[in-house]
């Protein structure tokens, strides 16, 4: 993010002219993912939109700390610039004195859903999933309904997920914005640099938090699989006498 998307001239200019910028380290937050840290002289690599969602979140906030828009993980510079412009539009809506809070929330939902429909084909292509994240998502789906799949069973592109999630969180106060569920996409661990620069500096607190979260996930998954096995066995027992009669 800091080496590829932020230095882009359009992104830099938007951030400089239109926003106040802040950077915070989330290594001690309970929702943080896991990765290795790389120094300023290590490589920076391109990836897909939303990659490393648990490790990076870009929050666009009004001065009174309401969430205008948010993006999980890495974003391509062209897509990031477009989302920043959307945040400016949403900020104008938030400040509009002529609309009631309900009207603003309604318009917010429409703007979020309409924005993603106007994304170019390139953005959809850059918002595809990586195999390990699809695997993690399919596992999570066994534990309950996920908003990451279309009704037809295919995973939704990340840009669609992000705008749908934001459409259901119109102008939420930062204090009540659930970052963990918003950024819940794919695996907790994400480290692309390891293939390029070798393993970087570990973040022990984040690694421990991610391990605890994974252990909880697999414990719940184990329960679901045991219940499924019991149900299959029960159905098998019921089916046997019927077979004998037939």
């Amino acid at each position: 993010m800091r080496g590829v998307s932020l230095p882009n001239p359009e992104v830099l200019s938007l951030l400089d002219d239109k926003f106040v910028v802040a950077w915070t380290n989330i290594r001690r937050k309970k929702y943080v993912g896991n990765s290795y840290g790389y120094g300023l002289t290590d490589s920076a690599v391109g990836t897909t939109n939303g990659a490393g969602a648990h490790n990076v979140q870009i929050l666009m906030l009004s001065p009174d700390l309401h969430v205008l828009h948010a993006l999980p993980g890495f974003w391509h510079p062209q897509d990031l610039a477009r989302e920043l412009r959307l945040a400016l539009e949403l900020h104008r809506l938030w400040r509009d004195q002529g609309r009631s809070p309900e009207q603003k929330r309604d318009m917010y939902r429409r703007l979020q859903l309409s924005a993603v429909r106007h994304h170019p084909t390139e953005t959809f292509a850059r918002s595809g999933w990586q195999g390990f994240d699809v695997h993690a998502e399919t596992t999570k789906r066994k534990l309950g309904e996920r908003d990451t799949f279309f009704a037809q069973g295919r995973v939704k592109p990340i840009n669609v997920i992000v705008h749908e999630r934001m459409a259901s969180r119109p102008f939420q106060a930062l204090s009540s914005f659930d970052i963990e569920s918003f950024a819940d996409i794919g695996k907790k661990f994400y480290d692309l640099n390891a293939q390029v620069d070798g393993r970087g500096k570990p973040f022990p607190t984040a690694a421990a938090a991610a391990q605890r979260a994974d252990a909880k996930l697999y414990k719940e998954l184990g329960k679901v699989m045991k219940a499924e096995a019991r149900e299959r066995a029960r159905l098998g027992k019921l089916a046997k006498p019927a077979k004998m009669q037939g």
Binding site: M1, F19, V21, Y38, N55, M60, L61, H91
Partner: peptide, 18 residues
């Protein structure tokens, strides 16, 4: 300034390991 905020929260620092 009346400007909105872009807050990047990341596992790591802008000027260090990230």
């Amino acid at each position: 300034s009346g400007r909105p905020i872009v807050m990047i929260q990341a596992l790591g620092d802008l000027n260090g390991f990230c």
